[in-house]
């Protein structure tokens, strides 16, 4: 994990220190440490001379800019109609069973977080899920178990 101040200053060199730099900075922090905490958002507000409420408002607008701690691997299961009809409920139930957590929760070892997401544009290959930035398509119960096992060993 990079020091957040350094990270922000690095991005300011590229994007400047006005409001337009807000998104790239927030994305960089989330990429680095998986979520934005109170101190991070204060640092960003300070660096860009905007209010912390503004930073928080922006962060909470975007699903991928988490403001609560997440596991190392964030799993997002598509809930939209194509994936739903292709059997996303079974996929989701399997994940809950395997990971022993409910929607929105993180495993005690901080490895996995289980979330529901809107359409990812893979309707023709549903059901799908995203693990961090990697997409997994045409899921079955067995496939999901294998995928989780792989990540467990990583």
């Amino acid at each position: 994990m990079t020091d957040v101040k350094e990270l922000i200053q690095g991005k300011i060199k590229t994007f400047g220190n006005n409001r337009t730099a807000l998104m790239p900075i927030l994305q960089a922090i989330v990429e680095d440490k998986n979520h934005l905490d109170e101190e991070d958002m204060i640092e960003v507000a300070d660096a860009l001379d905007i209010s912390t409420a503004d930073v928080y408002g922006t962060a909470t607008f975007y699903t991928f800019l988490d403001t609560i701690p997440r596991g190392k691997y964030v799993i997002r299961v598509c809930k939209t109609i194509s994936c739903h009809m292709a059997g996303k409920d079974e996929i989701f139930d399997t994940l809950k069973d395997v990971l022993k957590i409910k929607e929105g929760e993180t495993t005690p070892d901080k490895k996995f977080t289980l979330l529901i997401a809107n359409c990812m544009g893979w309707c023709h290959k549903g059901p799908v899920m995203l693990v961090n930035d990697d997409i997994y398509t045409e899921l079955t119960k067995e496939k999901v178990i294998d995928i989780i096992n792989e990540y467990q060993e990583k």
């Binding site: 109170e38 928080y56 408002g57």
Partner: peptide, 16 residues
């Protein structure tokens, strides 16, 4: 005060 969240969860709130 700022707008936080979106859609049906949108509300006006302070920092955190």
């Amino acid at each position: 005060l700022a707008v936080i969240n979106k859609g049906d969860e949108q509300k006006i709130a302070t920092f955190l």
